[in-house]
């Protein structure tokens, strides 16, 4: 049941990404082009998602266990540090170049588009490079 539920959450999330326009790089870049012909659609994606999300996180705060009886795994790190800023800058710049962020890249990869597969493969390589760099440069966090 738990496995089926995780699968369904992934499915709903992915369908939401497609319906919203997030899987179309030209639409994403049209949204990021605030100084040109600006397409504000994707602001509504974030607005709609956060409106629903806020209720659920407020509800989660009042509970001690999740629906399946397990613990809540919430991030404990609240430091605003160089890692956060540099990582976000790098991500934002890459998002602006290709028009893909991780979720839409994976959904588009699954639909078999060659460009999306190329991007997603490079993204996976980037994540592996990060892991390897963490292990050689820093102690495990």
């Amino acid at each position: 049941m738990q496995r089926f539920s995780e699968f369904m959450v992934g499915l709903i999330f992915g369908v939401g990404l497609i319906l919203s326009g997030m899987t179309d790089p030209a639409k994403v870049i049209g949204f990021l082009d605030v100084f040109g012909q600006w397409d504000p659609s994707l602001a509504l994606v974030m607005g709609g998602a956060i409106a629903v999300g806020m209720f659920s996180f407020a509800l989660a705060k009042k509970r001690t266990v999740n629906f399946f009886g397990g613990a809540f795994h919430l991030p404990k790190n609240n430091h605003i540090d160089k890692r956060l800023i540099i990582g976000a800058l790098l991500f934002g710049a890459g998002w602006g170049v290709a028009g893909y962020c991780p979720g839409p890249a994976l959904v588009s990869m699954a639909s078999g588009q060659t460009e999306a597969i190329t991007f997603a493969a490079a993204m996976l390589v980037g994540m592996i490079v990060y892991e390897l760099a963490q292990r050689t440069i820093h102690k495990p966090r």
Partner: peptide
């Protein structure tokens, strides 16, 4: 861009 998104999202 894929490399930047991969590294950046994990680092941030």
């Amino acid at each position: 861009a894929g490399l930047m998104v991969g590294i950046g999202t994990r680092y941030g």
